[in-house]
Every structure is written in C-alpha cells, then in structure tokens.
Nucleic acid binder design. Structure first.
Lengths: 138, 138
DNA sequence: GATGGGAATGATACACATTCTCAACCATTA
DNA sequence: TAATGGTTGAGAATGTGTATCATTCCCATC
C-alpha cells in the first residue's frame, strides 16, 4: 500500500485532494466531480474518476468499496470502520478501535493471501429515522 | 429482518430459490439468471432481479452488498463473513465466529439505529496467486 | 528560445449492472 | 363470468464507471 511511484501533482489532482480533505463525508466520484467543478468548471468527469483511482492505488486516499452501487472516497487513510444508512446511502465513520488481528485469523482459515478487511455496519441514520416516524404518525 | 409478509411462491421464485440453494458460491444476479434459464428458458432478467430483491427484503435469502460493482446473493442467511478476491472478484465464506456484539458497540457510538454489520476481507485467492507467480517468473 | 516525447486532460463513446415501464397474463374472489 | 390485483417478459431507460483519442501540457535537451 506504499506509494508505488511519485505522481505529478497537477492542478486538477491538487484540487481533487483539497476538496476531498475538506469534507468529513465520504463522497462518491460524482459528488467529488461536483465539488471540484466549482473551482475547475472545465474538468472532465473522466479525469476525476481516473485521478481518484490513481490516488487510491497510490495510497494517497482511500477507496471505499462498500455496499451500494457507488464507490466512495476518503481522505483519511488509516484503518477505520463505517456505517451506511440503508435508507439514504450516507456513509459515516464509526468510532470503534481497529482490529488488525482479524486479518491473521482470516489468513489462517482460508487459502487466500489476506491483504485487509473492512467492517461495515448498516442502519438508519437520525435524519431518516425521524422522517420515518413522521410518515407513520401521519 | 423477519418475513414482512408471505409472498406467493410462483414457479419462477421456486426455481430461483432452488438454484441459489444448490450452489455454495455467492452468485451475482446475472449468474442466477444463467442458472435459472436452463430450467425456465423464457424467464426475464427483470424477473430475476425483482425476485432476488424481493426475497432478500423478505429475509428468505441474503443480499451481499460487498465491494465490486455487482450485488451477490446467498441462500444461507445466518451471520457469517466473506472474503473477496481483489483479482477475480470471487467471494468465499470465511470461517470466523460471528461477533453480534459489535452491533451494540456501534449503536453506542453513533446516532444510527444499527441493524447489522458485515465484515469483508480482501485478498488474493489461490488461483490468482498462482497465476501471478507464473506471470512473474516468465 | 525552439522542439520532441511522454504524461495528462477533456470530450465523447462505450460497457455493464440495474431499474423502470407497460402490455399481457394469471390466480383469486366477488 | 367478470373484476381485481399481483406477476411476468420484453425492452427501454438510467446511472456508474471505463476506454478511446485528439489535443494540450510539462520538461529536459538542444
């Protein structure tokens, strides 16, 4: 997971990194595109995808392949876990100490070369929960 | 996660269930479609998607929203974890005792109504590992 | 300062998984 | 039997992500 090679920090990549670091959410590629476009209106969608992928390979950012149909990206790269709202798809960090030893257990009980793991909780976020209650009482 | 309501067991649904129970892998909707089509050649792809989704909502089967671009389905509905090959996308079960108490921890440290969790390991499966070694030695 | 080659970009077309739409169909009940 | 409502199959539509390709940019060298 080390940087495989230095990549050139083009203006586009700089802006993508900055915008990603600016938010505490875990935006999808499209959301990153929208954020970046405010500063670089002529940037192409392909460039955003290409560079998010590139920077994830490089270890500069984290690619979250969580449930749902979209990949999400995170500027915080240390091991931590997430919770996803089954209702609106939002992804938040969850405060739970990392359990890196799980990798060893998995390695022992399978014939895979284990490289990592991810825990994803699912639930209903506060906003969606309230919306549901209102819908019922009405 | 209880069955919300009885659903009618149409021939299509019956066959989908049977075929899904028959395999120990975690097929994608398309793979299920291929398996089912051998017995019901005129079934529509939409029907397969519709019913997999329906049966998952109903708790009859498990929908795995793991990494990768496709949803996968599992006839075994008790809590267990998975490992996904980052190379070929294959998903296997991992022998690891379930940790249902994690849900409580997550619930305590967030404002979500936690409904469950899933642990997904990633790694390189035996087949892909061998293929890689060959590619290097050549 | 010109220039040549590789990397990067933006526009577009494409691929793929999934969902939607809708007419036809079927089981059940009035 | 007729009406009702859920179900199906076919195909169109959507949405996410990838590939292609001409153009542009960067930068070392002349």
């Amino acid at each position: 997971m080390q940087p495989q090679s230095e990549i050139r920090l083009t203006p586009q990549r700089q802006v993508i990194l900055e915008e990603l670091a600016k938010v505490k959410t875990h935006p999808t590629a499209n959301e990153v595109y929208d954020m970046v476009r405010k500063r670089l209106p002529r940037i192409g969608l392909g460039t955003v995808y290409r560079n998010l992928e590139l920077m994830a390979d490089n270890g500069m950012i984290l690619k979250l392949e969580v449930g749902g149909s979209q990949k999400r990206f995170d500027a915080i790269t240390n091991l931590h876990y997430h919770i996803r709202c089954t209702c609106c798809g939002k992804v938040d960090d969850i405060e739970l100490t990392a359990m890196p030893h799980l990798d060893q257990l998995a390695s022992d009980s399978s014939d895979y070369q284990v490289v990592g793991h991810h825990i994803e909780f699912s639930g209903i976020c506060a906003t969606c929960g309230e919306a549901q209650e209102k819908a019922i009482t009405n």
